[in-house]
Design a protein around this nucleic acid. Structure first.
Length: 393
DNA sequence: TCTGGGGTCCTAGGACCC
DNA sequence: TCTGGGGTCCTAGGACCC
């Protein structure tokens, strides 16, 4: 049983948020620009058309870098870096707040442009997708070039695309020629183009796994491919070890998943200062309610109800704990969510200041598909019931 | 200079049931 | 008498990704 060779593309927008901002503020082109930080203000345009931008050096707070332009990256400023550290590396960089509404608009534009080629698209977030091009006629490089042109046309933005036999290779490949890249990978390219790469480049090998690999002398994908299966199993467990061996050889059969239902929705917030569980109780309580109402609003807006409510606390020492509670009925009601969340909160000892508070609802189903009993059903007395048989459901 | 927010998936133990 | 063996649900934590 052999399936035809697939043709899977991964498309990744180049420095997406930053590039969208440069469309708005073309005068920043060529400058080190950093997006992130959270509560900072947007630049003001003067009556004469000039704009004054905030500089990274003036930032105070707990935010992290969301994206940076390639000029800022050259100064060592990357995504997920603390803003205060970024400010030390690039004090003169321009700082812009994140504008998710704008990014979502451009995300919709580029995805619509790709959809003109095929509906076989898997969403991987705001700035990247997988595309199954197996049934799209034409030479791979040609199709990819046409998709890039269509994206550029629809958004004014560049992207990087790799076409490969599977998602694993396509994902790795789209990074190889960034920005504005177009990469084609075949199985024959694995030894030359994949094996020299750091193991960390594989989607699914994160910082922890990379560190553990390094500890047993494995730095590259090629070294991983040569590794003794027994050694891998001893360090990573059977499932992860066999997955590592597969990906190191470029094997991946995962399909492009065109649609999926959300599993959970959550809201969380990091406070500007760590809050004391007793002294700051009013603020905490107010924020707690706000988060519950926010999640409820998200659920209703998207048309879901959930049955499991969970909370997350991060303390001043960064230790994070979660609690959750499964209810008897599904809900999207803020007050019901808050009641569940409060039960969860009672199970956490509060002995340190609180840095982060989060509320999550999971076990989601589309609203309207509730099979929940409208009211508790009374057990019916049956004089003929066999006491050893379970009651009928 | 302490490290965001929104997700998914996996593991593992215990409860509970047949 | 040393006490099976699955399957599923619930809960907590952690790795990872964008």
């Amino acid at each position: 049983m052999s399936s035809p060779v697939r043709r899977i593309a991964h498309l990744d927008m180049d420095a997406f948020y930053a590039s969208v901002e440069l469309l708005r503020y073309p005068d920043l082109r060529g400058h080190a620009v950093v997006i992130g930080g959270g509560r900072n203000a947007a630049p003001e345009t003067q009556p004469d058309g000039t704009r004054s931008y905030a500089r990274l050096r003036d930032y105070v707070g707990r935010g992290v870098v969301t994206t940076s332009t390639y000029e800022a990256r050259a100064l060592g400023v990357f995504s997920a870096m603390g803003m205060m550290k970024a400010a030390r590396l690039a004090p003169d960089a321009v700082l812009l707040p994140t504008d998710f509404d704008a990014y979502r608009r451009y995300s919709g534009l580029f995805k619509a442009a790709v959809r003109a080629f095929t509906g076989q698209i898997e969403d991987r977030g705001i700035d990247e997708i997988y595309i199954d091009l197996t049934d799209v006629p034409g030479d791979a490089r040609d199709v990819a070039a046409r998709i890039k042109a269509a994206v550029k046309d629809a958004t004014g933005l560049t992207c990087s695309i790799c076409v490969a036999p599977n998602k694993l290779l396509a994902k790795i490949g789209s990074e190889l020629d960034k920005p504005d890249g177009l990469t084609i990978l075949t199985p024959a390219d694995i030894p030359t183009r994949i094996w020299p790469l750091a193991a960390r480049k594989v989607n699914g090998i994160g910082p922890k796994a990379a560190e553990k690999l390094a500890a047993i002398g494995i730095e590259t994908v090629g070294e991983l491919a040569e590794a003794d299966p027994g050694l891998l199993q001893a360090h990573f467990g059977r499932n992860y070890a066999s997955w590592l061996a597969e990906v190191a050889n470029g094997r991946d059969e995962r399909p492009v998943v065109v649609s999926s239902e959300p599993k959970s929705m959550s809201r969380e917030t990091t406070f500007e200062r760590d809050l004391h569980p007793r002294n700051d109780r009013p603020v905490l309580s107010e924020q707690f309610t706000r988060l519950c109402m926010h999640v409820a609003e998200d659920l209703r807006r998207k048309g879901y109800v959930g049955r499991t409510v969970g909370i997350k606390l991060r303390f001043d020492d960064f230790h994070t704990v979660t609690r959750d509670l499964t209810m008897t009925v599904h809900t999207a009601d803020g007050a019901a969510i808050r009641r569940g969340a409060t039960e969860c909160l009672k199970r956490i000892p509060l002995e340190r200041r609180i840095r982060l508070l989060g509320v999550r609802v999971s076990a989601l189903i589309p609203a309207g598909e509730q099979g929940d009993d409208p009211a508790p059903v009374q057990e019916e007395f049956r004089f003929d019931a066999d006491p050893d048989e379970p009651a009928p459901r």
